[in-house]
Simulated assay, not measured.
Amino acid sequence: MNQTTLNFAVGTFGTIITYAFGGWSELLSFLVIAMLIDIVSGVAASMKEGKGISSAVGFKGSVKKVFMFVAILLAHRMDVLMNSGFIMTGAIYFYLANELVSIIENYGRLGLPLPPQVKDMITALKRNNDDRQARS
């Protein structure tokens, strides 16, 4: 790849990121890191449980993560439209909390020690989520 092509690709990628998210922030970086840790810990937990790796489960998880970024993009565009700065931040924190709970669940599946309060919180969150899905 020559220098001009590389410069064009990087410039295009930067333009897309800036349009989609108003630039890159530490909060977005933290979300991406949490997503990567969730993926790795989920794969490790599945391997430990003897479930192996399923391409269907992996595809479903990947699609969910892509749509998280689509929702964040929409939240940023609403911020631009309404001249605010909190909708995208709120969306990122929402998805970040979701990723962190998933990481903690995966750590529990791996047999790593978790404080009882954390286990109780995860059980309550799962129960609430199951109740909501049952009503849908």
Score class of each variant (00 low, 15 high):
Asn2Gln: 07
Gln3Asp: 14
Thr4Ser: 11
Thr5Leu: 08
Leu6Ala: 10
Leu6Lys: 12
Asn7Ala: 14
Asn7Tyr: 05
Asn7Asp: 13
Phe8Met: 10
Phe8Pro: 00
Phe8Leu: 12
Phe13Lys: 01
Phe13Pro: 01
Phe13Cys: 08
Ile16Ser: 01
Ile16Cys: 04
Ile17Lys: 07
Thr18Phe: 09
Tyr19Asn: 04
Ala20Gly: 01
Phe21Tyr: 06
Phe21Gly: 00
Phe21Leu: 02
Phe21Ala: 01
Gly23Pro: 00
Gly23Leu: 00
Glu26Asp: 09
Leu31Ala: 02
Leu31Gln: 05
Val32Ile: 15
Ile33Leu: 15
Ile37Thr: 10
Ile37Val: 15
Asp38Lys: 03
Ile39Lys: 11
Val40Asp: 02
Ser41Gly: 08
Ser41Met: 08
Ala44His: 05
Ala44Cys: 09
Ala45His: 07
Ser46Ala: 14
Ser46Lys: 10
Lys48Tyr: 06
Glu49Gly: 02
Gly50Pro: 07
Lys51Thr: 01
Gly52Ser: 08
Gly52Met: 07
Ile53Asp: 04
Ile53His: 08
Ser54Arg: 06
Ser55Asp: 09
Ala56Phe: 05
Val57Gly: 03
Gly58Lys: 08
Phe59Tyr: 11
Phe59His: 10
Lys60Phe: 06
Gly61Pro: 09
Ser62Gly: 15
Ser62His: 03
Ser62Phe: 15
Lys65Val: 11
Lys65Ser: 04
Phe67His: 03
Phe67Tyr: 13
Phe67Asp: 03
Met68Gly: 06
Met68Val: 15
Met68Ile: 15
Phe69Asp: 08
His76Phe: 12
His76Lys: 09
Arg77Gln: 15
Arg77His: 11
Met78Trp: 07
Asp79Ser: 09
Asp79Lys: 10
Met82Cys: 06
Met82Glu: 10
Ser84His: 02
Gly85Glu: 10
Phe86Pro: 01
Ile87Leu: 12
Met88Arg: 14
Met88Lys: 14
Thr89Tyr: 04
Thr89Trp: 04
Gly90Arg: 10
Gly90Met: 06
Ala91Tyr: 02
Ala91Glu: 05
Ile92Val: 15
Tyr93Ser: 08
Tyr93Met: 14
Phe94Cys: 07
Tyr95Val: 03
Leu96Thr: 14
Leu96Val: 09
Leu96Ile: 10
Ala97Gln: 01
Glu99Val: 08
Leu100His: 04
Val101Tyr: 10
Ser102Trp: 06
Ile103Met: 13
Ile104Phe: 13
Asn106Val: 13
Asn106Asp: 05
Tyr107Gly: 14
Tyr107Leu: 15
Gly108Val: 13
Leu110Gly: 12
Leu110Met: 14
Gly111Glu: 13
Gly111Pro: 13
Leu112Gly: 05
Leu112Ile: 15
Pro113Ile: 10
Leu114His: 06
Leu114Ile: 11
Pro116Gln: 12
Gln117Phe: 13
Val118Asn: 07
Val118Trp: 07
Lys119Phe: 01
Lys119Cys: 08
Lys119His: 02
Met121His: 04
Ile122Ser: 10
Thr123Met: 05
Ala124Gly: 03
Leu125Tyr: 06
Leu125His: 01
Leu125Arg: 07
Lys126Phe: 01
Lys126Arg: 15
Arg127Tyr: 07
Asn128Leu: 14
Asn128His: 09
Asn129Gln: 11
Asp131Tyr: 08
Gln133Trp: 02
Gln133Cys: 00
Ala134Tyr: 03
